[in-house]
Structure formats: structure tokens, C-alpha cells
Design a binder for these strands. Sequence first.
DNA 1: GCCGTTTTCGGCCCGACTGTTTTCAGTCG
Length: 573
Amino acid sequence: MTLHNPQIAELFNRYAVLLEIKGDNPFRVRAYRNAARTIENLPRDVAAMLGEGDDLTELPGIGDDLAHKIADIVSTERFADFEKLKKQFPPGLADLTEVPGIGPKRIKLLHQKLKIDSLAALTEAARKGRLRGVPGFGAKMEAGILRVAEKHAAGEKRFRLSVAEMVAEPYVRFLRRIKGVRQVTLAGSFRRRRDTVGDLDILVTAVPHASVADRFVTYGEVSEVLANGPTKASVRLKSGIQVDLRVVASRSYGAALVYFTGSKAHNITLRTMGQRRGLKINEYGVFKKDKWIAGRTEKDVYEQLGLPYIEPELRENQGEIEAAAIGKLPKLVTLADIKGDLHAHTEASDGSATLEDMAHAARSRGYEYLAISDHSKYIGVTHGLDPARLAAQARKIERLNAKFENFRILRSTEVDILPDGSLALPDSALKPLDLVIGAVHSKFDLSARQQTERIIRAMDNRYVNIIAHPFGRLIGEREPYALDIERLMKAARERGCFLELNAQPSRLDLSDIHCRMAKKLGLKLAISTDAHTAETLDYMRFGIDQARRGWLEPDDVLNTRGLKELLRLLKRD
DNA sequence: GCCGTTTTCGGCCCGACTGTTTTCAGTCG
């Protein structure tokens, strides 16, 4: 069991918390957090990189010292510094950072004065009124701690992007109706289109004294007001989601949007760049010796740093600023580049629309093609097609196609990959199809090696073209299964196969990080909706979001090709 | 602990809100 990127990042983050409580150099703490973020977002496993002799110090935020530590962690599967430091503190102490309003300084204070070393001890002390004697702790703090104790694990919940949209849109409409409000823009990770968001950030420009924040907190869905100042407010909604508001004047709109869109790491890099040019950048604008010189639009802010506009989806401080500086930003794929959908279901299996309805919906979206890929007959899938029904469907598709001009339904199937890597349909059933999608819907608990080899074996079948939702994750419900994704991608490339970016907002599988990995490996991806109804063909935009976050350009995506070129690419030697 | 179009040493983004303070530290984003 080797340690992978997420575990190494977690070790650094937990180490940073302890360093902070210890009162270590805050910049050292930040260095560990930066390194953790770098590792977390790396398109390749550090263990694999080390195996191939890559120099980790070339990664942002990783110098000689951390490179050595990472190598040690990978080879020993232990983080010695962390284990040593951990011994100096009670095991539950770091959990206290979960309580809002309690940070490293207060944790240290509580531990010294009251020997509080866990969430349980903290709530016990609050209940008995023992916190009152500690400087900085009053009635409000005590009540807040008890409230957290009641809800307990209420925090840390993230929401799917599609869910966040449903919460955000009516709130935005509510804010637009407030007198004096000019622009209302959703920022934060929502605007960067992360697959999940922890909270919503809303930026408002308004005339002076429009008292937007005071109205903001009166929204009907608000369950708790966390903060309410003249230009800034935070609430928690009944749905559990936190919403932060920021109000600025129009001339600060661009600067505030950069600030509020983040990511935090992207902003820090921009501001540091500004410093070197003698500029101060904050949410109100770009300043030269206290003189405002820009900030009305985002473009103006980047321009002051000698940079072109950077798309929000790229703002993760993962090389986008360096790429911008040398004019090498990717020209990101857009919804308009998509020429068709390569994975959709009908009522023949578990979909709800007819073949005709799906074709009509695809044509009305301007597509040149739509693959109908109903499930194969296999356990766990209702109404899967056996060879006879699949052949009958293909004949029906041919009859329909005869009526279309400039549009074609592609005969396909989403065939189950059995635990041993064989397929749930015989070759004779696959051969006549335009494309075959292989998918895993069972035996999620294989080892990474077994699961990888199972899927590679499926790709050894010369009729298989695309592997659907490669990790099988359901966001917030089911973890991705173990998989050696780099090996799988290389195997796909060698065989002339492709992997899918499933655009269902509950899947988004492959993820943004894996999109970037595929691009680096020269593997094209299919962005497919897996639609089970006509309307959900619109989920394509969620797939596009993640592809853009993964730096994909039109050329990196299979279904940006016209029909003729697509069929040529699908042909396996 | 990282990093360099001022620097291999001495910096490290910047500002708002809260609670409890009698002028601001701590926390958060």
C-alpha cells in the first residue's frame, strides 16, 4: 500500500495544524499548506514521478527540504516529523480547529489554562461556564461552542455544483431586486466551476449606502446570520450552505471579482507579483503609491501585471499565471465546440425518452450525431438489451437515420465489463455497432491492480472504443474505486481507445485533475452526458466545466470532431 | 520552508468582522 497524493497532502495539512498550534513560523506553516495543495492537484502520482527520477523541486512551493521529505514519506510510508510532533500534543487537540472562531492561538490558550484537549472537553467546559475566566472568551463564544456541539459534524459538507446552482439562482434574483443594486455576480469556487462547492460567494456592486448587506440577511431561506457588516455579510441557509456577500463600488468591480473568485493561492501569487512591480492589489483595485490606477474590470487588473485575462476555471495557481506570462494559456473548449453526444439512454433500457425524442433533442441542440448506448443485459441494470434487442434497435436507428439530413444516430451500447474483464455481449453483437462503450457497474472493491487490469482486458477487445465513468464515483455518495489511472490512460492510448468524462453532475468522472493528466499523456477524452432523458442532454455544460478546469482545448476532446472525422478516430486499426 | 527583473537573505497578500477590548488580537476568506 503505497501512499498516494491525497494521503501525502493530508499529512502535510495535519502537520501544518500542529505547527500552528505550537506557534511555529506562520510562513513555514503556509509552506506546508502550499505544498499540500500542489500535491493534491498534481496530475501525476508523486510516487510514480520519483520512480522515474523526476525532480520535485520543479513543482511550485516545493524546495529541497520538502522534496526530500516527500521522497522519505514515499519510501518509508511514514512522515517522521509529523509523528514526532504528534507526540507533543493530545490526539484530539487538532480537532478543535473545526469550531468556528477558534484558531491555533485560542487552542493553545485553552490547553494551557484549562487543559482542554478535545471537542468533548471544550463543550464540557462551555457547559459548566468555565470558559468565562479565559481572556477573549465571553458569553457569545460559549453559546457558539455549545451550538456547534449540538450539531456536531455539521461542518465540512460540500455541495454538488448543480445543487449549489439551484440554491444560488433564486438568491441572486432576490438581491437584484434590492434598490440601488447594480451587478450581482456569483464568484468563488462556484465561478471556478469546481465539481463541489463548500460555500457560495456573491459579489454585489451598488450605489453608496444601498444597505445591501442588511437586506441580504433577511432572505427567507436564511437560518442563521454569521456576520453582518456594512460591506460584508455571511449567512447559513436552511439547506446548510453558507453564503458570503461582499459589496463594492462599481469602479472596484473587476478587482473585487478577482479577489472573490480566487482561488486564494491564485490571488496571493497575483498580489506578490504586484508587489514586485510596486503595486498594491486588493479587492478595491490596483494601487500605485495609494493612487487607484485600475480595477473596473478583471482584464484591467491582469493587464497591470502584464498578463492577459485568465479564465476563472484555471485560477488554481497550478501554472496558469506562468502560462499567461509567456502567452501560453490554453484556448479552452466551450459548449459551442461540441458536435455531438456519445453516451445516451432510451426507454429501451433505463432511460425515459424514446429514440425519436432523443434524436430530436440532440438535433435541436445543433448536434451532428448522438450515440444511443443503452445498457447490455446484465445484473444490476434494469431492462438491459440482449443481442436480439440490440440488433432490432440498430435496424430501427437505420430507418430513422434515412430520414435525417446532416444528423446521424450512432448505434452503440454501454456494455458491462464483467469482473474478469470480459464483456456482457458477444463480439458478434458488438461488431455491427458504430461505437462500443465499456463500463464497470459491479465489483468495485477490487485492488487497484485488479481493477486496472480488468478494464485494460476489456480494451483488448478490438470493438471497444470508450470507457465510461472510469472511476465509478458518485459525488458525496460513493468514493471512486481504486485504479491506476495513469496506466489505464497509457493502455487506452496504445489501443486507440478513449476515456469518458461523464458529465452527469453527480459523477463528473473523470475529474478535472484527470483531464489534465490525459492531456499531458496525449489521450483524447469524450465528454458525454449519459443522458437518461431528453432534457439532461443539457448536462453537457457540466462536463465542459471540468474539461476547462483540466486545461482541455477543442483538439483534446473527441466529440468536437465532425461526424466523418469522429468515425475515422473511432476506427481501431 | 520557499523564493529571487531589488534579493542566496530577508522578506513572505490584504482587508473585514467579531467579541470583548478600552485600542485590538484573532479568525476568516
